[in-house]
Amino acid sequence: MSDLRELYQEVILDHSKHPKNYYKMPDATHVAEGYNPLCGDHFNIYLKVEDGIIKEISFEGSGCAISKASASIMTSIVKGKSIEEVEHIFNQFHSFITGKVDKNFDPNSLGKLAVFTGVSEFPVRVKCATLAWHTLINALENNSEVATTE
């Protein structure tokens, strides 16, 4: 079970069972929808952005443990960050999880996102871990298309 625990770390299980910032925000300045029809992961991301800073973020929806935990952890990371910082974190995370970083890359430099190290071993599950992030980027860019990572 050791491998399994690497993918489904306690942190991931906790976030999926008790997601943070899990609510609908009625007065959001930015909203976007993310949907992976093949697996049914479906989330809405809500943001309050002031002066280029994410003041508040929340999400709601349903999906697998990986996608839900990723959305939950993402909301706790990006709160208070500037749009540029968020884009930088996303790019780093995306390169890491899709295996596009070199061997010396230290996952711990990603902070809380390091818990998704196990996911990078499962190409078919990478889409679960990145759905919320793609949705967030769409929200920030006021892109009204439904985000998908399938």
Binding site: P37, C64, A65, R125
Partner: peptide, 22 residues
Amino acid sequence: NIHPHDIGTILDYEGIAVRTGH
């Protein structure tokens, strides 16, 4: 309360190939 994709991945750890999805 357990999504089929999580079931599929954990069963895959056991060498069991099932289909998950619609």
